[in-house]
Computed example of a mutant assay.
Amino acid sequence: MTIDIYAANAQARRLQEEAASLLNVKRNLLNMKGTLEQGWQATEMNYLNNAISDMEREIGTIVDALQSLSADISSTASQLKREEEEREAAKAAGLLAKKGS
Results as ranks from 00 to 15, higher is better:
2 T>E: 06
2 T>R: 09
4 D>E: 04
4 D>T: 00
4 D>P: 02
4 D>C: 02
7 A>P: 03
7 A>E: 14
8 A>T: 02
9 N>E: 10
10 A>T: 05
11 Q>H: 05
12 A>F: 05
12 A>N: 02
14 R>F: 10
15 L>V: 02
15 L>G: 01
15 L>K: 05
16 Q>Y: 06
16 Q>A: 12
17 E>H: 14
17 E>Y: 13
18 E>H: 09
18 E>M: 14
20 A>C: 01
23 L>Y: 01
23 L>W: 00
23 L>H: 02
24 N>Q: 12
27 R>V: 03
29 L>D: 03
29 L>N: 06
30 L>Y: 06
32 M>N: 11
32 M>H: 11
33 K>W: 03
33 K>Q: 11
34 G>W: 04
35 T>H: 03
36 L>T: 07
37 E>R: 13
37 E>I: 07
37 E>Q: 12
39 G>N: 15
39 G>A: 07
40 W>A: 05
40 W>Q: 04
41 Q>L: 12
41 Q>E: 15
41 Q>A: 14
41 Q>T: 12
41 Q>G: 07
41 Q>P: 01
42 A>V: 15
42 A>F: 11
42 A>Q: 15
42 A>P: 00
44 E>K: 08
44 E>F: 09
46 N>G: 12
46 N>V: 15
48 L>K: 11
48 L>F: 15
48 L>N: 04
48 L>S: 06
49 N>K: 15
49 N>C: 10
51 A>E: 08
51 A>H: 09
53 S>H: 08
54 D>L: 10
55 M>L: 15
55 M>E: 07
56 E>R: 05
57 R>Q: 11
57 R>N: 10
58 E>C: 05
58 E>M: 09
58 E>S: 12
59 I>V: 11
59 I>T: 04
59 I>K: 06
61 T>D: 10
61 T>G: 06
62 I>T: 10
64 D>Q: 08
64 D>H: 06
64 D>W: 02
64 D>R: 09
65 A>C: 03
66 L>V: 04
66 L>A: 04
66 L>P: 03
68 S>E: 14
68 S>A: 15
71 A>R: 13
72 D>H: 10
73 I>T: 03
74 S>D: 13
76 T>S: 09
76 T>F: 04
77 A>D: 05
78 S>G: 08
78 S>R: 09
78 S>I: 03
80 L>K: 11
82 R>T: 13
83 E>A: 14
83 E>Q: 15
84 E>I: 00
84 E>N: 01
86 E>H: 02
86 E>Q: 08
86 E>S: 04
86 E>V: 04
87 R>Q: 13
88 E>K: 14
88 E>L: 12
90 A>Y: 01
90 A>K: 09
92 A>V: 01
92 A>W: 01
93 A>F: 00
96 L>I: 10
98 K>E: 15
99 K>N: 06
99 K>L: 15
101 S>A: 13
101 S>D: 11
